[in-house]
């Protein structure tokens, strides 16, 4: 449910990039930020550890403009992927309107993807959200790996549908804008008062 400020006529949606450590969540966000024109985006805030992996979150606001009399904003977040940041990961999902799960296509990361996805579902349930009905996109990142896992293999293991799955090579920008477009549309389509 987005935050609606009736006094100032603003609607804010929250989109969160979720996934295991090093799967490319920040790379997705950085690419989107780079591609958008200056007039509609705010500064990209990244809070990194010394190892340059996301400790807390990355964030930037995107101003969609004025729609039906309301100023509409998408606040884009990533969560920290590392196992030991479970607490902050759950917190970032609070108030989320949609989630992009960035999976790592490397075969040795298969288990991490499954574990992280199940954790995401648990996190959503902790906010009384049904993960199977919540707007979500599954992005298979790193499709340029020579032995990338098959598209659909994670969904089979997780027992979920494949309607909103995409392949990507975030370091080259492939599939990144397509993913955020699909996510944004799902969020808007689910919008109700």
């Amino acid at each position: 449910m987005p935050y609606i400020n009736y006094e100032n006529k603003e609607i804010s949606f929250k989109i969160v990039y979720y996934g295991p450590g090093m799967s490319g969540k920040t790379t997705n966000l950085v690419y989107i930020h780079k591609m958008l024109s200056d007039e509609i985006k705010g500064d990209l805030i990244t809070l990194d550890t010394e190892e340059e992996r996301t400790l807390f979150f990355d964030f930037f606001p995107l101003d969609l403009g004025n729609i039906a009399g309301y100023r509409v904003r998408f606040n884009m977040y990533t969560i920290p992927g590392q196992i030991y940041y479970e607490a902050s990961r759950r917190l970032m999902l609070e108030g989320a309107d949609g989630v992009v799960f960035v999976a790592d296509s490397s075969p040795i990361r298969f288990d991490y993807n499954i574990m992280s996805y199940q954790m995401m579902e648990d996190n959503l349930r902790s906010y009384d959200l049904n993960p199977r009905e919540f707007p979500s996109v599954l992005q298979y990142n790193k499709r340029d790996l020579s032995e990338a896992i098959e598209l659909g293999s994670l969904e089979s293991e997780l027992g979920i549908g494949t309607d909103s799955t995409l392949g990507a090579v975030a370091t080259q920008g492939e599939g990144v804008m397509e993913t955020i477009r699909m996510m944004s549309k799902m969020v808007i389509e689910q919008f109700e008062l």
Partner: peptide, 13 residues
């Protein structure tokens, strides 16, 4: 709102 927003999303992304 949805109609306009979906159009804008296409344009932006």
């Amino acid at each position: 709102f949805k109609e306009y927003a979906l159009n804008l999303i296409d344009q932006i992304f």
